[in-house]
Design a protein around this nucleic acid. Structure first.
Lengths: 187, 187
DNA sequence: CAACAAATAGACAAGTCTGTCTATTTATTG
DNA sequence: CAATAAATAGACAGACTTGTCTATTTGTTG
């Protein structure tokens, strides 16, 4: 079996990912997806029952890729505090690639989280995992204990979320770089 | 002159505000706005040329109201550090009223900021003013100087933005309350 | 009251949307 | 090669979208 269908699914998800992120889910029509993915409409509806299902699949795939990319980025940093700062470096790089469109999960939540519980659930899972991941890094970081481990974890999480959303408002990396510097001073 | 038109404009903006925030701009049709505002379609198009113009007006009015509400809330706090914490208290209260739908400006930016430059500009103005406002409070706060005034300003700004967006993901006030406690420790 | 401006209901145009379906072609496997 | 499954193009339905327009009623002011 050569899995002919997987190539089609990938083309659909690649296109959906690009358009949903750049234009928004609501502003992207199925017809634009099939045209730019260069596949037939019947093929899309064979693999995804509805447009909302495509959104859910997009969120799931983005979550998986986010996880492995972040793991790899943090693994490269040798010392514990460097791993905490690598979180910021990762997001600086990603937002530059994404042209400061902000967090894809937050964006999807703002557009469809109210109407589609699966989207909200996927995003909650993503953010909880992000928090847990930071928590594990904080635990072994040997930080200054200006605040507790739990507080530092939440602090880094909020600083990341806040600086990413601000970077998407002002369309520049300065906000995330600034957040990185502040955290560096406090750990 | 009794300004008969102002009553209509208010009804339109009240309804647009409620629907745009709760459902999203894209998910709200003009027909729903006129029906729930209980006004005629021609009246809406007399006061707002397009749906996008209505969005811009909604953003502008929300900005004005945000400003005066925040001024009042901070003014009530007597001491300088209390004013900084009042920022968090204000947003805790507002998000509870808003049922944790997040920041209306960020929401609008995610939905229409790419397509409508006036929306992006309005949101940038709002966030810049928020930062400046925090900066003025930090300047007179007599904080511990763990970081510089500029850094504390950005830190509080990011912690606010990050905890509000997180509160909108998890639909609870705990995130903003946690951010408040951390800042309290560090000032 | 008379005159003028504004709000009303609702039909309507023109386009877009999602999702379905048919008929044909392509590719893979025994 | 023959059979099976999948992808294709594109028409189509039905609902919804924004925005326009007409004809009528309401409200305000001199």
């Amino acid at each position: 079996m050569k899995e002919r269908g997987q190539a089609v699914i990938d083309k659909i998800l690649d296109t959906a990912e690009r358009l949903f992120y750049a234009q928004g889910y609501c502003n992207t029509g199925i017809n634009q997806v099939i045209e730019e993915a260069d596949i037939a409409k019947a093929s899309l509806y064979k693999h995804f029952e509805t447009k909302a299902d495509l959104l859910v699949a997009y969120i799931a795939r983005t979550h998986e890729r986010w996880q492995s990319r972040l793991d790899a980025a943090v693994a490269k940093a040798p010392d514990p505090k460097g791993k905490l700062l690598a979180l910021f470096d990762y997001h600086i790089e990603r937002q530059e690639i994404r042209q400061f469109g902000g967090c894809p999960f937050i964006k999807a939540n703002d557009e469809a989280g109210v109407l589609e519980p699966r989207v909200l659930a996927g995003i909650q899972a993503n953010k909880q995992r992000s928090k847990d991941f930071i928590g594990a890094l904080v635990a072994g970081s040997g930080h200054r204990k200006l605040v507790s481990d739990k507080e530092l974890t939440e602090m880094i999480f909020f600083m990341l979320e806040g600086s990413i959303v601000s970077a998407s408002v002002f369309k520049r990396a300065a906000e995330i770089k600034s957040a990185r510097k502040i955290i560096q001073k406090l750990i």
